[in-house]
Nucleic acid binder design. Structure first.
Lengths: 209, 209
DNA sequence: GTCTATATGGCGATAGAC
DNA sequence: GTCTATCGCCATATAGAC
């Protein structure tokens, strides 16, 4: 992430950034394989060849788009806060509920990335590993070593990631039937109930499985 | 599901079924948009036009493929058993862990379906509604009306679907790091712990949210 | 039932003018 | 920095021969 050269003095709003923004939007709407460089270009008022002036290939454009999205999200939800980890995840879902386009891009691209020779495959493998480690640390800090139902922080972490991804898919398909925030909150209660700090007196009775 | 005419006396192994099977395989590997009729055809030893003899359009082929997968799964996991609902889900995950290709097809196509004007979009909306209703009934039967942490069967149902989808995505990307069966089992323990039948004596102390 | 031939159009990428 | 022109390829779908 330190190697993104923000050319020519660091100004933010140039053509290159515009292309990245519109490409993210378009990949969200149509997937990577379903998106042509021409439609990205057209939305900006450029030709396909104009886009290829900034990125050598379509594949390179995708990789830069993903880097950008990560950079923005980490800036917003990683540095800042002292709140409990699961509260942070509820706030992330509250934020995501306001930007279906970005959620869609992530949902579509991550699933598409499991297909053969997809250019973002390695990227998503690494991203999920980092995410799980991040949640392990956050959950351990909030809830200790033994969680509800005898879960380890590692298990809870993979489940938390799965819940957020899975809920987002259901929400994208059927927003009126699926309440993102309510459900992630319900899952958080599930993890908290019975965790070591919550009910120490009866922990032995329920935790050993 | 009653309207699939299994032409000419019900024999199973004809060209049409062969095309459906190979198409499912190929959509799994490359997505719907990334798959051409020609590669499906070539794998069977047919030309693209030979495939279009059996299905009028590529879109129609996709729809038939999805119908087929549902029919097979319902046959296997819906009719049969008297076991608790969550045990059935663990068995489904055990089965899925042996057939990554099918899991991949479902993961890829469901996420791709949220993109603009995707031919399977309505199909997946309906499928998720049915799945959630199905789990509501199964969870209510197994665990009663009040689950751990005061969750309703409706909330638990959406979470269960999300967990299974989300875990499958992580598993497809990183099978050595993600244990499908262990994790779905961990989630089942989470739902069971504190449910009405499990700890009736202290239910009032934790259930009201 | 499967083929060849073909219409029609979109794709990513390169070369080079201005 | 953006364009026009073009290459080579692949896509879905139709028409019609065998």
């Amino acid at each position: 992430m330190g190697d993104v050269d923000n050319r020519r003095g660091g100004r933010a709003h140039n053509r290159r950034d515009e292309i990245l923004r519109v490409a993210l939007e378009t990949f969200a709407e149509r997937g990577y394989r379903g998106t042509s460089l021409a439609v990205v270009a057209e939305r900006i008022g450029l030709t396909q060849q104009g886009v290829l002036h900034y990125f050598p290939t379509k594949q390179a454009l995708l990789v830069e788009v993903l880097k950008l999205r990560d950079a923005e999200d980490y800036q917003r939800f990683d540095g800042g806060s002292d709140e409990p980890h699961l509260d942070g995840m509820r706030h992330l879902m509250e934020y995501n509920a306001t930007r279906p386009g970005v959620v869609q891009s992530f949902t579509v691209l991550s699933a598409e990335s499991v297909t053969d020779a997809h250019p973002a495959r390695e990227y998503f493998i690494a991203r999920y590993r980092v995410a799980r480690e991040h949640h392990v640390a956050g959950l351990r800090e909030e809830l200790g070593e033994r969680l509800a139902a005898g879960l380890t922080p590692e298990q809870a972490s993979a489940l938390l990631v799965a819940v957020m991804d899975g809920l987002q898919l259901q929400w994208l398909l059927d927003p009126d039937q699926v309440d993102l925030v309510d459900l992630v909150d319900a899952f958080a209660r599930l993890l908290r109930e019975g965790a070591t700090p919550a009910v120490p007196a009866v922990a032995g009775a329920v935790a050993d499985a």
